[in-house]
């Protein structure tokens, strides 16, 4: 299999087959919290995609160029979480200074991302799956776009749901989780495209 083909498979795998939200249950908090309106969902999705791509790049370098040569693999979690927290801070400062337009669009979502489990999950899965450097970057982009897709679909459904008569006890989180279950059922249809 060619290198390009492998990258395509990693992308489809991360975005659709093993969707971060609907298969790995990562990033559920923003998925439930920020999926009330389409605009907010899009902003959150793009912010996550941006940070995921950066995280994949930086944590790959840290793990394979620093932790492994120094035999410090046990510091993996501490190192990753520190890298993600500082990365989010740096991105926030950089955007505020240099790209104010983008900062206004994404700014409020950025601090929320530090504790988004999808980001740390991405770094952990990247190590588990032994991805090469290009594969890790594609994994980050694919994972982020998959998250964006899932949260956009959810926001679209929830906007319509405003007009539906949901049983009182299920309003809010309950019905959102049940819809997520049905979405996950639909996304199971993607398994099999990449043959294991």
């Amino acid at each position: 299999m060619g290198e390009i083909q492998k990258l395509v498979l990693v992308f489809i795998g991360a975005a659709l087959v093993n969707n971060f939200v609907l298969t790995y249950f990562l990033g559920i908090c923003p998925f439930i919290g920020v999926s009330r309106r389409l605009g907010d969902a899009l902003g959150m999705g793009l912010a996550v995609t941006f940070v995921m791509t950066l995280t994949a790049t930086v944590t790959w370098a840290i793990y394979y160029l620093i932790l492994i040569p120094l035999h410090l693999e046990f510091l993996e979690y501490v190192a990753f979480i520190l890298v993600i927290a500082s990365l989010v801070q740096i991105v926030e400062m950089f955007l505020r200074r240099s790209v104010p337009g983008l900062y206004r669009a994404l700014g409020i979502y950025l601090p929320l991302i530090t504790t988004n489990c999808a980001i740390l999950g991405l770094a952990l899965f990247m190590v588990l799956k032994n991805y090469t450097f290009p594969q890790a970057i594609v994994f980050g982009i694919g994972g982020g776009l998959g998250f964006t897709l899932a949260i956009l679909i959810m926001a679209g459904i929830r906007e319509e749901l405003e007009y539906a008569d949901v049983p009182e006890a299920l309003r809010g989180a309950g019905i959102t989780l049940i819809i997520a279950g049905l979405l996950a059922l639909a996304f199971m249809g993607f398994s099999g495209i990449i043959g294991g």
Binding site: F25, E168, A173, G174, L177, G181, L182, A184
Partner: peptide
Amino acid sequence: PPGAFITLGLLIGLMN
């Protein structure tokens, strides 16, 4: 995964 989402959704409704 679908079973996880749906079960938890219904349980939260029950708790409410």
